[in-house]
Write a protein that binds this DNA or RNA. Structure first.
Lengths: 246, 246
DNA sequence: ATCGTGGTCTGATCCAGATCAGAGCGCCGG
DNA sequence: CCGGCGCTCTGATCTGGATCAGACCACGAT
C-alpha cells in the first residue's frame, strides 16, 4: 500500500487507514507506539475538511463549540471584533498548528476563524477526543501541552515592547514555525495584509509599513509586497529576544 | 466529626479525610458524586502548604515543575523579569484560583510566584493529578477548563486599551472575583502596590496613581492607600466593557 | 524623637506611535 | 484598454502615556 501525499499509513489491515502527517495529535499517538484499536478510534473521530477559500470563515464567534482542528494547509487567522467594530487579531495558524483551543470548556467559540488563503483542516470532535484522551495518557498530555503553550503565547505580546521588537519577534516566530515544518526559514510569503499584522501586533498599519521599510533600509531583510526574505536572521532574533524571552 | 474551618469532610470512614472547600478541584469532584476510593486518591495527592510570608517566593522561574496549587488564603503574584531587569506581572491570584497552570508540559516553571501577604495553598502533584484525571472525566474536564480560561485571560490585556479602560477592567475583575468568593464586591483591599498594578496593566506607576485619583475626583470610587471602595460599579463596568468584551 | 525607606502623589517635559491625508500600484473585471 | 478597488507606502501633525524630578507620608528601626 502506498501512502497518499501528506498522509502516513498507520495500520496495514487492508483498509485504507490513513492519518494526516501534519496533525499534531498523530505525532503524539505515534510516540506511544502503535495500538491498532486506539488508532482506529482516533481515526474515526478525525475528519478532513476543506478546502476553504480565501476569506471564508471556518467558525464564527458564538458558533457552538464541538471541535478543534489542526491546519493541514494554508493559513488561518483568528480574531474578535471589539465594541467599536475594530478587529483584534488573536493569532495566525500555520500548517501543523491547532485552532479552537481557547473554546474548550466553553459552549461556544469565543472568536472568529477565517482562511487567509486556501485552507484544509483536520477536524477533531472534541467530546470524542476528550473521552479518548482519558484512555490514552499520551494524548491527554499532548492536549495539556497545547493548551499550556497557548497560555504562554498569549502573554508574549502582552508586554511593553517597541514596534521594532514586536515586528522582529513576529518575523522570527514565523520563520521558526515555517522551519519546523520543513519550509525555508529565510524566505516565505506573508499570507496576511499589513493591517492584519498591525491588528495582531497592536500597531497601526502605517507603523508596520514604516518598520518593514526601515528594516529593509538597514539590510535586515528584503520585502516586496507579501514576499519576504530575512537577510540577517541573527540580528532580527537579537531584536526579538526581549519579546521571545530568551 | 466536626469540619475544621475552611475544610469540608468528604468521607466519614473514621479517618480524618478533609478537603479544603476553596479548592477548585474539590468542587469538580463533588459534582461527580462521591466515590470513596477516587476521593481518597485525590486526597492523597493534595497537600496543604504555607503559610508563606509577604515577599516569600512559592516557586521561581526555572524551578522543576511538579505541582499546581490552589490559593486557599492570601494573594499570589506571578511575574517574569525581562532582559533589562524589569518586572512583567502576569497575574494576581485570589483565594480559589489556581497557580502554575502555564508550567504544565514544561519541565520547569516559566515564571515566579510570590506571596503578597500571608498565603496558604493546596498543592496538587501534577503527575498524580494527570493520572487521576484519566480515570475521572470530570476532573479532566475541569483541568481543560482552567487551562482554557487562562488563555482567554491572557489575551484580555493584550489589546489596545487606554489607561482608564485597563484600570477599570482591573478593578471590576477584582470586584467580581472577590464577590464570587463571598467577599464584598465594593470594598476590598488592594494587596499589591501601585507599581505591581502598573507592571500588570503595562502602565507606569505614575499613571496608575493619576488614573485612580481622577476616578476618585469623578466620584467613581474612593481610595485611600490600599483600601478601595467602588462607588459607581456600573459606570466602572461600562468603562471596562471593551476590555472585558461584554 | 530622629532617621531612613518604601510607597504614593503631582507637576513638567518628551517621544513613540497613532492619526490624518494623500499618492502610487498591482490586479481583476468589464 | 480603462476603471475601480484593495493594499501599500510616505509625509505631516497630534497626543496619551512614559519619563524625569521631587515632595509628601506612613511606618519601622535605631
Amino acid at each position: 500500500m502506498k501512502a497518499a501525499p501528506g498522509r502516513t499509513p498507520i495500520a496495514d489491515d487492508g483498509d485504507a487507514l490513513h492519518f494526516c502527517s501534519t496533525c499534531a495529535f498523530s505525532a503524539a499517538c505515534m510516540e506511544q507506539g502503535y495500538d491498532k484499536s486506539q488508532l482506529r478510534d482516533l481515526h474515526v473521530l478525525v475528519e478532513h475538511i476543506g478546502p476553504f477559500r480565501e476569506g471564508e470563515h471556518i467558525f464564527r464567534e458564538g458558533d457552538a463549540f464541538n471541535a478543534i482542528a489542526a491546519v493541514r494547509g494554508g493559513t488561518v487567522k483568528t480574531y474578535v471584533t471589539d465594541t467599536e467594530g475594530r478587529e483584534q487579531v488573536q493569532g495566525f495558524f500555520l500548517p501543523g498548528e491547532v485552532i479552537g483551543l481557547s473554546a474548550i470548556s466553553h459552549p461556544r467559540y469565543p472568536c472568529n476563524a477565517v482562511a487567509l488563503d486556501s485552507v484544509v483542516l483536520c477536524r477533531f470532535s472534541f467530546p470524542n477526543i476528550a473521552a479518548l484522551a482519558a484512555r490514552m495518557p499520551g494524548l491527554q498530555q499532548q492536549l495539556f501541552r497545547l493548551l499550556s503553550l497557548d497560555i504562554g503565547k498569549a502573554s508574549l505580546l502582552a508586554g511593553n515592547f517597541t514596534a521594532d521588537e514586536r515586528m522582529a519577534a513576529f518575523l522570527v516566530s514565523l520563520s521558526r514555525r515555517f522551519a519546523a515544518r520543513g519550509f525555508s526559514a529565510t524566505r516565505f510569503r506573508l499570507s496576511m495584509t499589513r493591517t492584519d499584522m498591525a491588528n495582531y501586533l497592536r500597531l497601526a498599519s502605517e507603523t508596520v509599513s514604516r518598520v518593514l521599510t526601515r528594516f529593509q533600509d538597514d539590510g535586515l531583510l528584503r520585502v516586496e509586497r507579501r514576499d519576504i526574505e530575512l537577510l540577517q536572521p541573527t540580528q532580527l532574533a537579537q531584536l526579538a529576544r526581549s519579546v521571545l524571552r530568551e
